[in-house]
Amino acid sequence: MNKIVSKEYFSANVIKFEVEAPLIAKARKAGHFVMVKVGLKGERIPLTIADADLQKGTITLVVQKMGVSSSKLCALEAGDFITDMVGPLGKATHIENFGTVVCACGGVGTAPMMPIVAALKKAGNRVITVIAARTKDLIILEEQMRINSDEVIVMTDDGSYGNKGLVTNGVESVINREKVDLCVTIGPAIMMKFVSQLTKKYEVPTLASLNTIMVDGTGMCGACRVSVGGKTKFVCVDGPEFDAHLVDFDEMLMRLGGYRDIEREENELYKEALSSK
């Protein structure tokens, strides 16, 4: 049981939690994730750690309401408890002074990028962060990103804020302007696929942090497997970060959609149950 210390709405559907987890706060590094389960019959879902406070013994999670499990988590308030939480899991991001790094994040993927940006900056990199979202209200953590980035480029699909365009337009503008040594991308799988295609064209080495379906999250079930360079890898123990140019994103997108029908049904039932309360 882990107590929620604070809850903050970034937007109607994107919520930031600070959760008591002193051991995880101490052990976690940039790139690590936790498995979270809400309720006795809850599902175990992976969430990448966005931040940690050693003094308070808390970690920060940013959650987007999508299906039943994330909605149940988002329905919790400060003072409530998360039934089960375990971590930090996965391999930490490999950090060194690469030179100039572009961090390309989309939507809620901006949150797990925060510790990576901070660590890259600390290691002496010039860090340019591209934050992208559909519209102005969905741009999150811009101020925090500015603290550790040399430059922040904001992109919105509808042009309601920052530059009009996709994350790839932002990344491409940087590549056309200066030498980029590494790109790191976190966001929806489809977004990472296009960032990867772009940087491959320009031969910029790229890391993608993958968010596949997991059950145990500790290297036991293999639900999270992806093809990387033609080999099957397990995101939970071999990742979550991989060389984006080797990831088979089409297969990953297909596997992410595997339970969509069942999930849709369960979501309908959950909404019904909520409205009948």
Binding site: G222, T232, V237
Partner: peptide, 25 residues
Amino acid sequence: AGLPRFMNIKGENLVGVMSSNEYLT
């Protein structure tokens, strides 16, 4: 036990193909 073994054959990552660890878990 840890990682489930697969046979590295074509189509093994299709939706609906899984390890017994995943299914039973």
